[in-house]
Design a protein around this nucleic acid. Structure first.
Lengths: 128, 128
DNA sequence: CTCTTAATCAACCAAACGGTTGATCAATGA
DNA sequence: TCATTGATCAACCGTTTGGTTGATTAAGAG
């Protein structure tokens, strides 16, 4: 037991993990089935060690898990983790869209209407 | 005109932008309405210049836009950009889930069943 | 015109990231 | 037992990131 305690910056690591095109390609590959480090390394012009690091990043972000099958350690994509990401994004996207709709309706055929207005009263304190 | 040509690594920048907790908090704030740099800076213990940089990152990622209202430059969240992100994630999540369902059904009450198997024949070449 | 306010530009710095090479561990197969 | 294969650990390096301070531009307000 060392780290992995968060409950906090788990989103940080997940978004960070997907920020790299190599890691995204790995996720794309893994969506079609588990794969070993060597299999994942194959499409790229980088060393196996670099691939190993990338997988560790994905694992640390909770996006993939690893099991053991003889001397091979297949990597498995965790779809639920992906869902947590979309949940975060969709949450704020829907807030923004609903507010847009709300205001669009408020001044149905009215004034020239430029973008949004600060919705004055609403909850505070969010921080992720 | 200098860069911003992509059409390519637009996802890179978007995920990268959301990888930072400060930037995510800004997105959360902006989901409730446009805000200026100073307003966005208020909740954080960092300089206004740092905030300005963060906003530039979000802007460069296509997640926010900026207009001009006198000497104030309000930042506006682009919900459509958020949707593009969830679209990417959901795509691969659904692939993974559908494959899982498919295999789960294949061996209805069968063998001990450990995780997935490489679905042998399927499209290749994805990269992002 | 001058002063204040909002925001950016520019140079710099410590820390983290992506990558490399080289050595090591773990499980098989001869 | 020993050599091989799959994968990780460890140290190092160049580039990028997040942050700072200091100077500068842009638009009102006095």
């Amino acid at each position: 037991m060392e780290h992995d305690a968060p409950g906090s910056d788990t989103l940080d690591r997940a978004f960070m993990a997907l920020a790299d095109p190599v890691r995204r390609a790995m996720v794309a590959r893994l969506s079609r089935g588990d794969a070993t480090v060597n299999e994942l390394a194959e499409p790229f012009a980088i060393t196996k060690q670099a691939v190993s690091k990338h997988i560790q990043v994905l694992e640390h972000a909770g996006l993939v898990t690893r099991s053991r099958d003889a001397q091979r350690r297949p990597v498995h994509l965790d779809a639920a983790a992906l869902e947590r990401l979309t949940a975060w994004i969709d949450n704020y996207r829907l807030i923004a869209e609903s507010r847009f709709r709300q205001l669009d309706e408020l001044l149905g055929a009215g004034t020239s209407h430029r973008q949004e207005e600060n919705t004055p009263a609403q909850k505070k304190e969010e921080l992720t």
